[in-house]
């Protein structure tokens, strides 16, 4: 039975217009889904490192798509060619669309030239999952680290990206830092471009 819905029937996905990104679902719907993603992956691994790697891989493919979609829709088809440009794209555009806000901070590492950190007081995926003590340093933010790596790698800025809990003085819960370590080729190209 054809209902009274407003959505037109398209013969093929390629005929359907790209979404404007305004549709929403409840946070809890996402939380339930994400929780199943984590729990499923727990059954597939023997240790925390493997669990994080699987979540990162799951996020990577999301990042590849997010890069293309958002550059087109939000940045008027502007392709980032500089390091600070792509970092700003991640910290502002990607974060705003996926998490509803720009990231709390973007900092350059003080000890290493090739390191940058995007930090969030309460990363969305860490808000509703409490890590049991026997899981040590496991961070669900690995999924987000994967998304970031997917964006950076496909944009031509390969990097190792990991998620870490960082205790903050005066705060009960630690903040989450996404640590980005760029490959050498990226820094060489940056130097060359001047």
């Amino acid at each position: 039975m054809i209902g009274v819905g407003k959505m037109k029937q398209y013969t093929n996905v390629l005929d359907r217009p790209l979404s404007k990104g305004k549709q929403e679902v409840s946070l809890s719907a996402f939380a339930f889904l994400f929780s199943e993603l984590v729990q499923y992956n727990q059954t597939q691994v023997d240790n925390i490192a493997e669990l994080e790697r699987r979540l990162e891989d799951a996020g990577y493919a999301v990042g590849a798509r997010v890069l293309e979609l958002l550059c087109h829709r939000e940045k008027g088809n502007r392709r980032e060619t500089r390091l600070l440009g792509i970092l700003s794209f991640v910290h502002s555009t990607v974060w705003k669309v996926l998490f509803g806000k720009v990231a709390d901070s973007l900092e350059k590492g003080t000890e290493h030239e090739d390191e940058y950190m995007i930090s969030e007081k309460e990363l969305l995926v860490n808000r509703f999952i409490s890590i049991p003590k026997d899981m040590g340093t496991f961070n669900c933010g690995a999924f987000v680290a994967g998304i970031v790596r997917g964006v950076l790698d496909n944009a031509g800025f390969p990097a190792v990206v990991t998620a870490h809990f960082v205790p903050v003085e005066g705060q009960q819960r630690p903040r989450t830092t996404i640590l980005i370590k760029f490959a050498e080729e990226v820094l060489r190209r940056e130097a060359r471009l001047g």
């Binding site: 979404s19 990104g21 549709q23 999301v62 798509r65 996926l98 998490f99």
Partner: peptide, 23 residues
């Protein structure tokens, strides 16, 4: 729906896609 905290549906859609792919 207006009273609960909401997120961009794209995050939801993309995460679900990632789950199906993994499976």
């Amino acid at each position: 729906f207006a009273s609960v905290e909401r997120v961009n549906a794209e995050l939801f859609t993309l995460t679900y896609g990632a789950i199906v792919r993994q499976l």
